[in-house]
Amino acid sequence: MFKVLSNDLIAPEVHRMVIEASRVAKVRQPGQFVIVRHCEKDERIPLTIADADPAAGTITLIIQAVGVGTKDITATPAGGALRDVAGPLGRPTEIERWGRAACVGGGVGTAVLYPLAKALADAGNEITTIIGARSKGLVILREELAAFSKDVLITTEDGSEGVKGFVTAALEPLVCDPRRRPNVVFAVGPVPMMAAVAEMTRPHGIKTVVSLNPIMVDGTGMCGGCRVTVGGKVRFACVDGPEFDAHEVNFKELADRQGMYGEERCKLEGQLESMAGGGE
């Protein structure tokens, strides 16, 4: 069991949780994730490690309660415990000194963005952060990102704060201005957002990295459920990623595969006629 030390609501349905996981905390690097399961019957949920304190033996997760599994996890109060926390998984972010870096987060993807933006800043990059959200109340981690960013730009779909529109509305002026053009762009968020960022930077030849979150089970390369096509090759996001060159990713396929379990033929209704004696 992994003890929950704190659980704070930082935006509607978005929780910041500090969890005791000393082995993970000791070796975790930016860009890596853990697989978390609240209880026996829950799914295995991959979650990016937002931060870690190796001395205290804790990791911080920022989780949006969207499905049953994440709702169970975020409903665990301080003092409670999670059944499973396994990791750190995935390859760490490749941190280099690029110069100007734009870090673009959409929705709860901003939480995934945070650790890698911080690592980029620590490496001496000049960071411009763009946070996109549906509306003002859903903008997360603004102060945390501002602490090391040269600029923080906000976009909201309803125009309740910052630039009205998507993150690309704030990114476009940057990439079009040779004096402010970033040398590298990191983008994390919904698939359409990452695809739009990739298309915006492609004509300018700006290196663009996205962190992908396909459906996965084990997170160790065993199941292959998280396979994505990158540069025409099949890669496993759990062991080869989760970060990939945005200009090489087949986003259409990724979006299709992510939607798989929302669909009728994966629902539990109409299953076995006889369940007697099956399973524990």
Partner: peptide, 16 residues
């Protein structure tokens, strides 16, 4: 492992 065949499991699997 995830018990997708059991009604109480939250892990889905495609059927056809």
């Amino acid at each position: 492992l995830m018990g997708a065949y059991r009604p109480d499991s939250r892990t889905p699997v495609a059927r056809g």
